[in-house]
């Protein structure tokens, strides 16, 4: 029982970081119907940037987060304007190809800069943990989960309490309608993409402190993040949080009780099954358009 609870604790802690990383993916899909396959690669990129800051200047990964977020915001904005923007309006599967192409380019760039081997960030609290009764909470993960919650709450306020948030939501519901009432949809889309990549950056920075980073692992990351948002319902922020918790816990359970090879397959299986059995996921509403077409 203690072992099970411990597994659940670790799963929820991992889930919090996953939720933060998936929030950008679901936000980008919700607003512009673009499935950003490069999301995993951006996460690994943020982790590598954090790694470089740490190894060159000794900057603590958690303190690097604001800086990384700003840099990732800029990168997201540039990539959106340079590539993603041009594929909008063509068939959805074309946007998938473009973002997939971006993922490959990022993987290649990271391979050239940091090499195709694993890098780890070791801080003085890397191996420390907080013990409460019979349970232990790894300190890194505890801090990361706390930061994830803070950033998610900030994102929630941004979307629900600011003009920009209203504009983003308006653009996601009805693009031409938003255009007509004076929302510059093009600018909103670019900002949304950049914000999505910036929140991901926060998650990626913590990722570097939690586990070793390798360029080629972006496939696993995008699989995991896609599984999360597909499970929660594409475009739904609360859905992404719920999906992240489920995936985090399931992975921990699979590692502990089934075998360490299985977590690799879990996300792909979830994607496969959910998209076939319940394409709208947990929180996604089934729209009238979906039924007709």
């Amino acid at each position: 029982m203690i072992a099970l609870t411990q597994t659940l604790i670790l799963g929820v802690l991992a889930g919090a970081v996953y939720a933060l990383m998936a929030s950008g993916l679901t936000l980008i899909f919700g607003v512009m119907r673009v499935i950003n396959i490069a999301h995993g690669a951006f996460a690994v990129l943020a982790a590598f940037l954090t790694y470089s800051l740490w190894s060159a200047f000794g900057l603590d990964p958690l303190l690097a987060i604001p800086f990384i977020m700003v840099v990732m915001f800029g990168i997201g904005w540039v990539v959106y304007q340079g590539a993603v923007r041009h594929s909008r309006g063509s068939h959805v599967s074309m946007t998938v190809l473009v973002t997939f192409g971006i993922a490959l380019v990022l993987e290649g760039v990271m391979g050239i800069i940091w090499g195709n081997r694993s890098a780890s960030i070791r801080t003085d609290y890397t191996d420390a943990s907080v013990e409460v009764g019979p349970f232990f909470f790894p300190q890194v993960q505890l801090l990361a989960a706390a930061i994830a919650v803070v950033v998610l709450i900030a994102l929630y306020f941004l979307l629900n309490k600011t003009w920009l948030g209203r504009a983003i939501r308006a653009a996601s519901v009805n693009e031409s309608g938003a255009l007509l009432v004076g929302v510059s949809v093009a600018a909103v889309a670019a900002l949304t993409f950049a914000i999505g990549i910036a929140t991901l950056g926060a998650g990626g920075a913590m990722l570097g402190a939690i586990q070793p980073i390798v360029p080629g692992t972006h496939y696993q990351w995008i699989a995991r993040l896609l599984a999360i948002i597909v499970l929660g319902g594409l475009g739904s922020l609360p859905g992404a949080v719920i999906g992240a918790m489920i995936i985090g816990v399931t992975e921990m359970l699979a590692t502990t009780y089934v075998g360490s090879a299985w977590p690799v397959a879990v996300p792909f299986l979830i994607i496969f099954i959910v998209l076939i059995v319940r394409p709208q996921g947990i929180m996604g509403a089934r729209l009238r358009e979906d039924l007709v077409s």
């Binding site: 499935i35 599967s93 699989a223 896609l226 299986l269 496969f272 998209l275 076939i276 394409p279």
Partner: peptide, 20 residues
Amino acid sequence: VTYRSRGASFVIITIAFLFL
């Protein structure tokens, strides 16, 4: 699976299929 999914979700399924 195309009985249930199209467009972008189908592309994702094909990636998942390859990895599976």
